[in-house]
Amino acid sequence: MDYAAILSILEGAIRLATPLLFACLAGLFSERAGVFDIGLEGKMLAAAFASATLAAVSGSAWVGLAAGVGASLVLAAVHGVASITFRGNQLIAGVAINFLAAGLTVLVAQDVFALGGRTPALTGAARFQSIALPFAETAATIPVVGPFYARVISGHALLVYVAALAVPATWWILFRTRFGLRLRAVGENPAAVDTAGVSVTGLRFAAVMICGFLCGLAGVYLATALGAGFVKDMSGGRGFIALAALIFAKWRPWPAMGATMLFGFLQAVATRYPRLDLGVVVVPSQFIDALPYILTVVILAGFVGKAIPPRAGGIPYVKER
């Protein structure tokens, strides 16, 4: 394997990690506030469909972005109403949201475009095009570092850089602001937050809506940057890989970036080498596909470090009367 091949895999890893990173940070906000969310997949799918549809109709990727985020926020609101307002089972609400998105997207896509559950292919301004970072061309001549900058770091769609910036932003919000402190507290001990006179409901709704916003960006990226339009079930389990990455990262922002990069890298390798020949053994692509899930189970089992979720996660808060 030469340097060019390595660069190409790394470049693919960043592209494939971006939707995972958005969804992982989305789950991080929600779960840190004590609301489990296995509906990341559904919100992402709904956003992908809405953005592709509106981008196709309007010809503008920005209109698509607004529509995608909007669709995801609507589903996040459903999750909030079910699991916060009516104190329903958060996991079941998440399952329902996944199916709602899986069904409605295809149903509406077929009704609007009659293309067998797809949207038309997006071209030109309807997609987020790749951006060349400054000096990418000149830097490419510098040995080793230059091509890395020009080929791996530069030349991605805008949302890739937004995802990268979302990591320090998430860290800053959660660990350096009053809102973040309260948000983490509400995931550990909501009764204490309530006693302090801060609304548990309000905080949790805020977290769930931030989660919806970030899932929206993940879906928009899938349909308008990574892909060129919507196809049935295009999220393809990424919401669950993001969930796995979240556990892998033990609900922390910087490790979330590391975990999603690792899983993105695995996907890039599996795409490039369907049969990875390591000399001693040939690794089938199915094994690499399953690796994020296997790693997560190992981490959850606590054999390699222990992943402890926020203490109040999954439990609806009942105010004392």
């Binding site: 079910a82 329903g88 089972n89 949201i97 709602l100 069904g103 149903l107």
Partner: peptide
Amino acid sequence: SITRELIVVIQALVILFTGALDE
């Protein structure tokens, strides 16, 4: 022109209302 996915929608709504929005 209604695709099979209508059933997935109904399934989702049943799960939502009998499972999560029970209250």
